[in-house]
Design a protein around this nucleic acid. Structure first.
Length: 304
DNA sequence: ACGGAAACCTGCTGGC
DNA sequence: TGCCAGCAGGTTTCCG
């Protein structure tokens, strides 16, 4: 999936091309894209008509459009891109993509917003906004309209003001799970996926199978800082994309794949020490690391 | 609390 | 050439 940097690239595109516009019609193709909106796609389309888009917000890998109805009622359209979702801003006259699932037309002469999703793990729903408890003492933090009621279990991501690094380190210190599993836990720190977890671990010289609680506080601090750093650098490059699946709203790819140090580099030399990068199975997916820089010290696990 | 696996999908690749 | 297993950047949910 798109991880935090790729989702932020999309959010900025929405900020530039969708915020301020009035939705005239929304069309959902098939039932799957709105499967989390219980009343169904027709109801969702009906409710969206006539709303003005006040803002485009993000926490971790979740995006939402803040909407205001003609009667002043505010809600939001929560969007998750899943593994392959794309939001594209383009003319309604452009040919329809094979995996087009939704279109939004606006009450102006501008382009359409389209949702295209090959694997259909992505989706959207109309949800109430609730106060952001994570930013209670920050005057709303970066979410002045609040956060979607259905993602209150998602922790702040390392790029928002509400992110509390010391609190995350303290929680990691209490976790007896593998540290990579913790990094991928969106309820602990959001936005980090398989690529940036491996990159942060490589930069911090920690093997993902190390027990979180067994790592020193400085090491954990370093890891969180590196996760933030690598995602910021990726954002500067327009995100990571190996193929045309991960693009901004204009359909353009980012370039951070050229800067990856670990992910996808099996058998190639570590850029620090020259040792060949290894690939291991972990959590039903792949992990890449340097055997020299990131020694594996698994702990004795409880017998089954 | 933790680890593992499966579910939800389509498409591409590599080996036979 | 064709078929099929395996793999892909995510989340949720269940089981032991």
């Amino acid at each position: 999936m798109p991880e935090l940097p790729e989702v932020e690239v999309v959010r900025r595109g929405l900020d530039d091309h969708v915020v301020g516009r009035h939705i005239e019609t929304a069309v959902f193709i098939g039932a799957r894209v709105a499967r989390r909106h219980q009343p169904g796609p027709t109801d969702l389309a009906d409710r969206l008509r006539g709303n003005v888009v006040l803002g485009a917000q993000r926490r971790g890998k979740y995006l939402w459009l803040v909407l205001e109805a003609p009667d002043g009622h505010r809600q939001c359209l929560v969007i998750h891109l899943g593994m392959s979702g794309q939001l594209l801003v383009e003319s309604a006259s452009r040919p329809r993509q094979t995996h087009l699932h939704a279109t939004f037309d606006f009450a102006d002469d501008g382009p359409q917003l389209r949702f295209v999703d090959q694997r259909t793990f992505g989706g959207m729903a109309l949800v109430d906004l609730v106060p952001d408890l994570a930013a209670a003492d920050l005057d709303g933090g970066s979410h002045p309209w609040g956060v979607p009621a259905n993602i209150t279990h998602i922790a702040p991501d390392p790029l928002e003001p509400a992110f509390d690094q010391a609190a995350v380190v303290a929680r990691l210190k209490a976790r007896h799970a593998a540290v990579k599993r913790c990094l991928l836990d969106q309820g602990l720190v959001s936005g980090v996926g398989n690529i940036y977890a491996d990159e942060a671990l490589w930069r911090a010289r920690i093997h993902g199978e190390r027990q979180a609680a067994a790592l020193s506080r400085p090491a954990l601090r370093r890891l969180i800082e590196q996760a933030r750093e690598v995602m910021l650098e990726a954002l500067d490059q327009g995100g990571t994309s190996f193929d045309a699946l991960y693009v901004n709203v204009n359909g353009a790819s980012g370039f951070f794949d050229r800067s990856l140090d670990a992910y996808g580099r099996e058998g190639r030399p570590c850029r620090r020490c020259g040792t060949l990068i290894r690939r291991e199975a972990f959590m039903n997916r792949s992990s890449y690391s340097c055997p020299q820089c990131q020694p594996c010290q698994p702990w004795p696990r409880r017998a089954l």
